[in-house]
Amino acid sequence: QSSFEIPDDVPLPAGWEMAKTSSGQRYFLNHIDQTTTWQDPRKAMLSQMN
């Protein structure tokens, strides 16, 4: 996992939702293809902008 956290005020891509496990770990739900991931989809968006 990357060492940086994206602030919560940065919006997720369309169709995504952020949730937390009972222990507080963030994960991401993709409602478009109905998958979940630990990888923040905003990181991919930001790396494409740089």
Results as ranks from 00 to 15, higher is better:
residue 5 E to L: 09
residue 40 D to G: 00
residue 29 L to M: 12
residue 11 P to V: 10
residue 48 Q to M: 12
residue 9 D to T: 09
residue 15 G to N: 08
residue 43 K to G: 07
residue 44 A to C: 12
residue 42 R to D: 02
residue 10 V to S: 13
residue 48 Q to H: 09
residue 25 Q to R: 08
residue 34 Q to W: 03
residue 30 N to P: 00
residue 15 G to L: 02
residue 22 S to V: 11
residue 13 P to A: 01
residue 7 P to R: 13
residue 7 P to T: 15
residue 20 K to H: 13
residue 12 L to A: 04
residue 10 V to R: 10
residue 45 M to E: 14
residue 18 M to A: 12
residue 12 L to T: 04
residue 50 N to D: 15
residue 36 T to A: 06
residue 17 E to M: 05
residue 10 V to L: 09
residue 35 T to W: 11
residue 16 W to L: 02
residue 30 N to I: 00
residue 15 G to D: 06
residue 45 M to R: 13
residue 5 E to V: 12
residue 2 S to H: 07
residue 31 H to L: 09
residue 2 S to A: 07
residue 7 P to W: 06
residue 37 T to F: 01
residue 43 K to T: 06
residue 11 P to H: 14
residue 23 S to P: 03
residue 27 Y to N: 01
residue 37 T to E: 02
residue 47 S to H: 15
residue 15 G to M: 07
residue 42 R to Q: 02
residue 22 S to Q: 12
residue 24 G to A: 04
residue 28 F to T: 01
residue 38 W to F: 12
residue 27 Y to S: 02
residue 44 A to S: 12
residue 21 T to H: 08
residue 49 M to E: 15
residue 13 P to T: 01
residue 19 A to Q: 09
residue 45 M to T: 14
residue 20 K to R: 13
residue 20 K to L: 13
residue 1 Q to D: 15
residue 34 Q to A: 09
residue 3 S to L: 01
residue 46 L to G: 14
residue 8 D to C: 07
residue 19 A to K: 10
residue 42 R to G: 01
residue 9 D to F: 06
residue 8 D to I: 06
residue 23 S to W: 04
residue 12 L to N: 00
residue 44 A to Y: 03
residue 23 S to T: 11
residue 24 G to L: 03
residue 32 I to Y: 15
residue 18 M to P: 02
residue 38 W to S: 06
residue 41 P to L: 00
residue 32 I to V: 11
residue 49 M to I: 13
residue 1 Q to G: 06
residue 13 P to D: 04
residue 19 A to D: 09
residue 14 A to D: 14
residue 25 Q to T: 06
residue 2 S to L: 10
residue 24 G to T: 03
residue 38 W to E: 07
residue 26 R to K: 06
residue 39 Q to N: 09
residue 36 T to R: 04
residue 11 P to A: 10
residue 48 Q to K: 15
residue 11 P to C: 09
residue 27 Y to L: 03
residue 10 V to T: 15
residue 35 T to L: 12
residue 46 L to M: 14
residue 29 L to E: 04
residue 10 V to W: 04
residue 10 V to K: 09
residue 12 L to G: 02
residue 33 D to Y: 15
residue 18 M to C: 09
residue 21 T to P: 03
residue 37 T to D: 02
residue 23 S to F: 09
residue 48 Q to R: 11
residue 38 W to Y: 12
residue 24 G to M: 05
residue 8 D to T: 09
residue 13 P to M: 01
residue 26 R to Y: 03
residue 38 W to P: 05
residue 17 E to S: 13
residue 1 Q to Y: 15
residue 29 L to K: 10
residue 4 F to Q: 10
residue 22 S to K: 13
residue 31 H to T: 10
residue 31 H to S: 09
residue 46 L to T: 15
residue 16 W to Q: 02
residue 48 Q to N: 07
residue 49 M to Q: 11
residue 8 D to Y: 05
residue 32 I to D: 15
residue 27 Y to W: 01
residue 2 S to F: 07
residue 9 D to K: 10
residue 36 T to G: 04
residue 31 H to W: 01
residue 11 P to R: 06
residue 5 E to T: 14
residue 45 M to V: 13
residue 46 L to Q: 14
residue 18 M to N: 03
residue 44 A to F: 09
residue 40 D to V: 00
residue 13 P to Y: 00
residue 30 N to Q: 00
residue 21 T to W: 02
residue 50 N to L: 07
residue 13 P to G: 04
residue 4 F to C: 12
residue 20 K to P: 03
residue 46 L to H: 13
residue 23 S to A: 09
residue 20 K to I: 11
residue 15 G to H: 11
residue 6 I to S: 13
residue 7 P to V: 13
residue 18 M to H: 04
residue 25 Q to S: 13
residue 25 Q to H: 13
residue 12 L to V: 08
residue 28 F to I: 02
residue 44 A to N: 14
residue 42 R to Y: 01
residue 46 L to A: 10
residue 44 A to I: 13
residue 3 S to R: 05
residue 30 N to T: 01
residue 30 N to F: 00
residue 7 P to Y: 08
residue 40 D to L: 00
residue 41 P to N: 03
residue 27 Y to G: 02
residue 36 T to W: 01
residue 5 E to C: 12
residue 42 R to N: 04
residue 35 T to F: 14
residue 31 H to C: 07
residue 22 S to A: 13
residue 35 T to H: 03
residue 50 N to V: 08
residue 15 G to A: 06
residue 12 L to E: 03
residue 22 S to F: 06
residue 27 Y to A: 02
residue 4 F to R: 10
residue 32 I to G: 06
residue 18 M to R: 07
residue 37 T to V: 01
residue 30 N to R: 03
residue 38 W to L: 08
residue 34 Q to V: 02
residue 28 F to E: 01
residue 49 M to L: 13
residue 24 G to Q: 05
residue 8 D to F: 05
residue 33 D to R: 09
residue 15 G to V: 02
residue 12 L to D: 01
residue 39 Q to W: 10
residue 47 S to G: 14
residue 23 S to I: 06
residue 29 L to D: 01
residue 18 M to V: 10
residue 24 G to Y: 03
residue 27 Y to T: 03
residue 23 S to D: 15
residue 17 E to C: 02
residue 48 Q to A: 12
residue 9 D to A: 10
residue 37 T to C: 02
residue 9 D to M: 08
residue 16 W to S: 04
residue 28 F to M: 01
residue 27 Y to F: 07
residue 33 D to N: 15
residue 2 S to R: 09
residue 14 A to Q: 15
residue 49 M to C: 14
residue 16 W to I: 04
residue 15 G to R: 04
residue 34 Q to H: 07
residue 39 Q to C: 13
residue 33 D to G: 09
residue 44 A to G: 14
residue 2 S to N: 12
residue 36 T to C: 10
residue 1 Q to E: 08
residue 1 Q to L: 11
residue 26 R to D: 08
residue 45 M to H: 06
residue 50 N to F: 10
residue 1 Q to R: 04
residue 18 M to I: 08
residue 30 N to Y: 03
residue 3 S to V: 02
residue 25 Q to A: 14
residue 45 M to P: 13
residue 1 Q to S: 05
residue 38 W to D: 05
residue 41 P to W: 01
residue 33 D to K: 09
residue 34 Q to S: 11
residue 22 S to D: 12
residue 39 Q to V: 13
residue 46 L to E: 14
residue 27 Y to D: 03
residue 26 R to W: 08
residue 40 D to Q: 01
residue 26 R to H: 02
residue 8 D to P: 06
residue 22 S to N: 15
residue 5 E to D: 13
residue 25 Q to P: 02
residue 38 W to H: 05
residue 50 N to P: 15
residue 29 L to R: 09
residue 32 I to F: 00
residue 45 M to L: 14
residue 21 T to R: 02
residue 50 N to Y: 08
residue 5 E to S: 14
residue 19 A to S: 11
residue 46 L to Y: 15
residue 12 L to C: 11
residue 32 I to T: 09
residue 4 F to V: 09
residue 11 P to W: 03
residue 23 S to G: 12
residue 33 D to M: 14
residue 12 L to Q: 03
residue 8 D to M: 09
residue 5 E to M: 12
residue 31 H to N: 05
residue 3 S to C: 05
residue 39 Q to Y: 05
residue 22 S to W: 05
residue 4 F to I: 15
residue 34 Q to G: 09
residue 8 D to K: 07
residue 24 G to P: 02
residue 21 T to G: 06
residue 31 H to F: 01
residue 34 Q to F: 06
residue 45 M to W: 09
residue 16 W to E: 04
residue 36 T to P: 01
residue 43 K to C: 05
residue 31 H to K: 14
residue 38 W to I: 04
residue 15 G to Q: 04
residue 10 V to G: 09
residue 5 E to N: 13
residue 16 W to Y: 13
residue 40 D to K: 02
residue 39 Q to G: 06
residue 16 W to H: 03
residue 3 S to G: 04
residue 13 P to W: 00
residue 11 P to S: 08
residue 17 E to I: 00
residue 50 N to E: 10
residue 14 A to L: 09
residue 26 R to V: 12
residue 16 W to C: 05
residue 14 A to I: 08
residue 42 R to I: 00
residue 43 K to W: 06
residue 39 Q to R: 10
residue 21 T to M: 06
residue 48 Q to S: 14
residue 24 G to N: 13
residue 30 N to W: 01
